[in-house]
Design a protein around this nucleic acid. Structure first.
Lengths: 154, 154
DNA sequence: GTGTCTGCAAACTTTTTGCAGAGCT
DNA sequence: AGCTCTGCAAAAAGTTTGCAGACAC
């Protein structure tokens, strides 16, 4: 390891169990339909944010309507069960939210082949604090994604 | 100033002169049409990224076609004269590129009223270097935007 | 004059909405 | 039963493309 500097790094996130997810759904007084269950099961196996179409395609042979995927993802996002990401190509991507407060992470995306690497590092929080304070903003968050050329595409 | 930590801060960027822009256009063997000139003049007066529609509206009474604005912005982006930003709402925003290498900056956006503040601070470059090295990626860049609630909206 | 640019129309993509029937609890 | 969810159709919003005429050089 040639890294002498250690950046702010969250502990590895753990996926929610499907049970947790179902529990949360019920708590939100949402119904646990067959489609949503299948959707959650699938998302639970994925490591990277997926587009609506990718999720739709994974629901074998169009068993679920595209519109339903859109609606489901919006609902899950509203409940905080999934997080929406923008990779700059005007297509929304969704990823199951990890457990607890340790879900915050970013991505490194290859601009040639779209390979995605999950990045745990982030900049130290005092940068955000300073920006918040200096501008009088509250509840400041950030979106941060990295882009580059992966080893295979170089 | 209660800020004891000083973050990586680029010198204030300076706008290109219109002359420079026209020069670059010519260098790219692009034609300097009336529409493009008006577009560049307008962008040169703006401080924040604007959507295509906002730019279109600013071209008095639809003198320029919406499609032409799209095409012009793509062309200017390709030439590096404007930069495209995503504020997470699936609408592209464009801003005239500043001079030299000091154009890199980010934004702080109010999630209530969409007010935009230009942010010069950024995290220290060693974070990006580490991420690049650890994953074998080259030419790594990043997109970073901050979101919060502005003083007026609190 | 020649090659590029522009406007108009149309297509395309992503996402949202309305409504009646089906499904969950 | 009661309320939610789903599929289908349609619409909305953002963006891209094709082509003939207009314009810059």
């Amino acid at each position: 390891m040639s890294d002498t500097h250690h950046h702010h790094k969250c502990p590895p996130r753990s996926k929610s169990t499907l049970f947790d997810l179902e529990e949360k759904l019920r708590m939100g007084s949402k119904r646990l339909t067959g489609g949503r269950l299948k959707l959650l099961r699938f998302l639970n196996t994925q490591d990277h944010p997926l587009t609506i179409k990718e999720i739709f395609s994974a629901m074998d042979s169009g068993e679920m309507d595209l519109v339903t995927v859109y609606r489901s993802m919006s609902m899950l996002e509203g409940m905080g069960l999934v997080k929406r990401y923008d990779f700059g190509d005007a297509v929304a991507r969704f990823e199951l939210t990890g457990e607890g407060q340790h879900d915050h992470h970013h991505h490194l995306i290859c601009i040639r082949c779209d390979t995605v690497v999950e990045i745990e590092e982030c900049f130290p929080p005092d940068l955000e604090n300073a920006i918040s304070r200096q501008n009088g903003f509250t509840a400041v968050t950030h979106k941060l994604e990295f882009f580059g050329v992966c080893p295979k595409c170089q």
